[in-house]
Design a binder for these strands. Sequence first.
RNA 1: GGCCCGGUAGUUCAGAUGGUUAGAACGCUAGCCUGUCACGCUAGAGGCCGAGGGUUCGAGUCCCUUCCGGGUCGCCA
Length: 588
Amino acid sequence: MKGLKRTIMNGYISEKNIGETVVLTGWVAKARNLGSLIFVDLRDRTGIVQLVFDSTVDEEIFKKAEKIRNEYVLCVKGVVRPRGKEAINPKMATGMIEVCVDDLRILSEAETSPIHVDDKAVTGEVNRLKYRYLDLRKPSIQKNLILRHEVARYARNFFADNGFLEIETPMLSKSTPEGARDYLVPSRIHHGKFYALPQSPQLYKQLLMVAGFDRYIQIVKCFRDEDLRADRQPEFTQIDLEMSFVDMDDVMSINEEFLKGLFKKVMGVDVETPFRRMSYKEAMDKYGTDKPDTRFGMELKDISSFAENCSFGVFKDTVKNGGCVKLISASGAGSFSRKEIDKLVEFVKFHGGKGMAWIINGENETRSSLGKVLTEEEIKEIINLAESNVGDLVCIVSDKCDVVNTALGALRCHIAEKLGIIPDKYEFLWVTDFPLFEYSEEEDRYVAKHHPFTMPVDEDIDMIETNPEKVRAKAYDIVLNGYEIGGGSIRIYDNALQKRMFKALGFSEEDAYERFGFLLDAFRYGTPPHGGMAYGLDRLVMIMANCDNIRDVIAFPKVQNASCLMTGAPGTVEEKQLKELNIKIVEE
RNA sequence: GGCCCGGUAGUUCAGAUGGUUAGAACGCUAGCCUGUCACGCUAGAGGCCGAGGGUUCGAGUCCCUUCCGGGUCGCCA
C-alpha cells in the first residue's frame, strides 16, 4: 500500500491505543468537510473510526483529503487521540477517540454508489442484489455473514469433538425419483445422460455408515429446483450428519447438546434441554402446521361435532362432506374494529380459506357474523367450546381439513404478531411420529413423507402393505419459533425391509434396482443400524440473525425466479458447448 | 401454474376526481464554513413516470398486453 502496512483494524481501536501511531485502511463511510477541518468516517468489517484532517497541521495532506468522497478506499497513518469532552460521540463504538492523520494514501477512488452503504438507508431489493458487493459492505449484512461463519465453525468443532468425521460427497450425482425436482447437468461423454446435483447427500452418508465411518458430518450445498420463498433458495446449505448404532433418542440428545451449546456460545442464550416433543398429529390438531410456533397459545380447537348438528347449513355440509370446522380464540382481540376483522377475513381468504366467521365475546354483548344463521344458544355453545374469555375474538373457519389448518394456523401467527404477544425467546420443539407415507392425488399412489429410506416405527412395520397411512416413521423435525430448521430419521438398514418400502411406493423391482441398486447391494454386506439429521443452515442463521428473509444471510442469493441479478445467471451458452453436449434448444 | 402487492431523478418516495413546465428528501457538482458525526448555509445539474398498444382534445394517472421485483398457494422425499 505504497509503503504503509496496516497495524490495526478500525473497530479494534479504543482508548487503550491513545498516543499510538497507527496505520489504518478502509472505505469512506462519510466525509464531513467543515472548511479547514475534515472528518472522515473510515469503515472496515470491524467498525468505523473517525479520521481528522486539520489544515493547520498539514496543508498538503488536507488538500488531498478535500478530494475524498464516499466509498473511496484509503490507507492513512496517524495518531490516536482522545476526543474533547464536547466531541465525544456516545453513539459510536469508537466515539471516545479519533485519529489525527499525518499521511494519506487514496488507494482507490469510487464513482457515486448506486446504493447508499448505510444500515439506516432503505434500499430496494433489486439494487441490493444487482450491486450485491456494495450491499455486502453494510455492517448489518456483514454481521449476518460473520454470525453464519460462527455457526458453521461451532458445528464443525462440536461434531469433530464428538467423533464425527468431515467427509465430502459428490456434487455430480444421480437423479433419483421422489422428492424435489433435480437440477440436471448434461454429460458430455455419455450422450443423452445427466448428472443430478444432490438434493442432499442422503444416500452417500448412509453408504459411509456401511463403510464403517461411524459418525459423519458435512456442511454442504444442496440443490432443489422448486419455487422460491422467503425462507427457501434453490441452492442452500445443510449441516448434514449421520451416526451408526443409534436410535432416535441418541440422535436427538446429541443434537440438543449441539443446539444448546451453539446458542450459548454464539448468542449467549441459555436454552433448556431436553426439548419439548410433540407428535405430528398434535401439531396439526392444535397448531394447524407441522412446524408450530409454541411461544404462545391460541391453539386451534375442533368444533366439527358441534357443527355437524348445528343450524348453519354451511357448517353442517362441510362436516358431512368430510371437512372440518375449527376455531381459535384470540385473547384481547375482541376490541378489533369491524375493519380490522374484515382484514382478518381477507387474510384467511389469502391463505386459501373461503371465509371466516367470527364472534366477539364482548363484556356486555356478543356480536357475531353468525348472528343470523345460528341461535343465541348455539353461539354461546361455541364460546364455551372455544373456552373463550370476555374480550376475546373467536375466529372460525370451515373447509377441507388441510385448508382449515393452513388458514387458521397462519391466522393464529398473524393475530399473535398483531397483538404483540409473541415472547422474544427461542423455543425448540421436536415434532415426531410423522406418517411414513402420504397419499399423492397427483401420482395416484403413496409417496414417502420424509424419504424412502426412513425406518417405520417397529410395531407399525406390518401395516406397510395393509394399512400404509397408519404407519408411523422414526422421523423427527427440529422446529424453532415456527420454522423447520432441521429434520432427520432412523434409516432402514435391512435389505428386505427396504425392498418392501420401494414396493409400497409403487416401484417395480427393476425400477428400484435401476435407481437404488447400489444401496440395496450395499445392504447385503453388513450394515449398521444408523440414522441422522440435517439442518438448514441458512434458515437457522436467519432466525439467529433475527431476519425474516433467507437472502439476508446468504452472500449471493437468487431472486424469486431463481436468477441472479448480479451475474445474470442463468445465461445462454455458445452453440459449440451445446453441440458437445448433444443438446438442441427447442423454440416454443 | 393461481392469487395479491409494487415499478416515477443516482437512491427512497409523494403525485384525489385525467388538465400548464412531474415534486420532496437524501445523494451528486460548485462555492462558503475549525469540532462535525443525519454537520450547516448558498447555487446548480439530474426524468423514455419499466416497455408496447389503446381510450381521450389531453395519460405518470383509465383500459389491454408484456417485462421486472416482492409475498403467498400449489410445489419443496
